[in-house]
């Protein structure tokens, strides 16, 4: 089983509720992901904790405001702030989402979908290249959750995202829960998604919980991960090998020990897939 050259192990999203405990107990996890925008401030307590914790753990930065799909001009004020934080934190990598967050200067603060067609693809590829040139590094783009499909789409999300990574020479942050949520909302087979993505582009996995309304599912990040998402994670490890994996929890945040237990499930699934793979190879 191939190990990703940038493999970090198993991590969590760093949340303010856990700052103190992380510093005092140094919990057994391999890395943290931080939301870039939460620390694009001049100073104060959260940023102080961030730098303290950074001394003990590798970090990656995950953004929500790049708006890579927007037809508004790239926001270079934002990119400059991002670059400043990158210089301060020296993260292993940075990521954002395949989406647009606003238009005509108005920000929705949401990850809004783009149509999957050639016009959007080339637009996004060009902007990823500009961002990578400005930041001086490759970035990771995450597959979104979505609730609508535009009539203007003429390719699947997995074909779009794989081609995007190829043309823009960027990496993919594959959110396993997002694949599950979008598959339920749009009626596609999540296995088609996994097989449509080239392993060479995938550098990170996200895992998260959602809220199931029966006919549709909303990506709320406020619940434990459900069994079908664990099953899909197992399939993802089988296809993509050892990929840095973390759990995103953004609301209804439990005690750190609960998230560490959930992370252990991911670790066990991954270990089991990898050891089975080694056994079958020998």
């Amino acid at each position: 089983m191939k190990k990703n050259d940038h493999y970090l192990g198993f991590g969590l999203g760093l949340r303010t509720e856990h700052f103190q405990q992380v510093l005092e107990t140094r919990p057994p996890l391999d890395w943290f992901e931080v939301i870039s925008e939460n620390f694009m401030v001049a100073g104060g307590k959260p940023k102080h904790y961030l730098h303290e914790i950074r001394q003990h753990y590798p970090m990656v930065m995950h953004g929500v405001s790049l708006s890579i799909g927007s037809t508004d001009p790239l926001n270079y004020d934002y990119l400059r702030q991002l670059k400043t934080l990158i210089n301060e934190l020296q993260p292993e990598w940075i990521s954002d989402h395949l989406c647009f967050t606003g238009a005509h200067g108005i920000n929705s603060h949401d990850l809004l979908p783009v149509p999957y067609n050639e016009e959007a693809l080339q637009h996004i590829v060009d902007r990823i290249s500009q961002v990578q040139d400005f930041l001086g590094q490759q970035i990771l783009i995450e597959n979104p959750t979505s609730y609508i499909t535009f009539k203007e789409s003429d390719m699947s999300e997995w074909v779009f995202i794989d081609e995007m990574a190829k043309r823009a020479d960027c990496h993919i942050l594959l959110d396993i829960n997002n694949i599950y949520v979008s598959a339920r909302n749009h009626g596609f087979d999540p296995q088609d998604y996994l097989t449509g993505i080239s392993p060479k582009y995938v550098r990170q996995f996200h895992l998260a919980g959602h809220t199931d309304y029966g006919d549709y599912v909303i990506d709320t990040h406020d619940q434990p991960i459900v069994d079908p998402v664990w099953d899909l994670y197992r399939d993802a490890v089988s296809r993509f090998g050892l990929v840095s994996t973390m759990i995103e929890r953004d609301d209804n945040i439990p005690v750190l020990d609960d998230l560490l237990s959930e992370l252990d499930i991911a670790r066990k699934i991954s270990d089991s897939v990898i050891s089975n793979s080694i056994t079958s190879e020998t």
């Binding site: 929705s108 809004l112 609508i148 499909t149 535009f150 789409s153 909302n185 549709y216």
Partner: peptide
Amino acid sequence: IMTQGNVDNKTRLNIY
């Protein structure tokens, strides 16, 4: 918006 499954387009858009 394309019509998909049992969920009407208004419901889908209102999620956003």
